[in-house]
Amino acid sequence: MIAASARTRSHTRLAAIAARLSPARLSVPTFLAAWVFFVILPLLVIVVFSFFQVRSYRLVYELSFDTWQSLIESGRWMIALRTLRVAVTMTVIELLLAFPFALWLAKGCRSKSAKAVIITLLTIPFFLDAASRIIIWRAILGTNGMINTALMASGLVDQPVSWLLYSEFAVHFGMLGTSFPTMVFPIFIIISLIDDSYLAASDDLGASPVQTLIYVTLPMALPGILAGIIFTFVPLMAAYIEPQLLGGGFVDLLGNSVDSALQQLRYPMAAALSTVVVALLGLCLTAFTLLTRNRLDLSTIFSTLRQ
């Protein structure tokens, strides 16, 4: 009797332990532990590195504010602001271009083969080396390039238009092709998932196409738009090929500054610049959350995918 009772108690304890160790209960702590180890810890190491120094190409483990001081004095902090401005501008431009295109591709383009060709064409930037793809623009945008030659020949201008190359315009222009697919694909996928019956119902209820777009399509496409913004904005913050090849040294972004620091083995400076990038991304996310807290709930936004 006593032995049976002890066996029952033992089984109950084991069951309780097993319940506590169930995959459902373990998944969150495991994920958090992995997140801290693989993401947070390296970031903390980067921040700590920014307070060390380099002397004669050797890292000196003495804490100092020298790197941060020179970051401000050399004007490198201004690069952070410029990078943010360029990244935000390009993200907005890409969104304005990509949304109507994705909408047409998902709902307007009826030919399956045309759709397949377009999707294939959109993947080309992922297969080509960015530098070889972008350097071509030099031959087109330069003072003796195709565009200027055509403009001069047509008599539209007397002198070559110099701002076409080695300018902020050229950098933005070069980024257009690189970032377009990363904005289009998530929006295209989410709009493709919208059931046509919702759009038909909106039409049946007397909504104009614009009203259907604003009140049905846009809210349901929000997860894709959000994903497109993230996939476009984050790589733009680290862009360095377009500014290097098309900016002519006049449009330095954070990536170029980090590269320059690393060439001199100035790891603390590279770490400080990386810290600035992470801080800026954190600020952007906080600002986005605050601005949309009454209109957009990030925790439920993806629930539209279940409909």
Binding site: Y57, S70, M78, R82, D252
Partner: peptide, 17 residues
């Protein structure tokens, strides 16, 4: 490998920016 490499690199960034 100038002794003042750090200073020169920082100042050069001022020119670039």
């Amino acid at each position: 490998a100038p002794v003042n490499a750090d200073v020169m690199e920082d100042e050069w960034q001022r020119f670039l920016n």
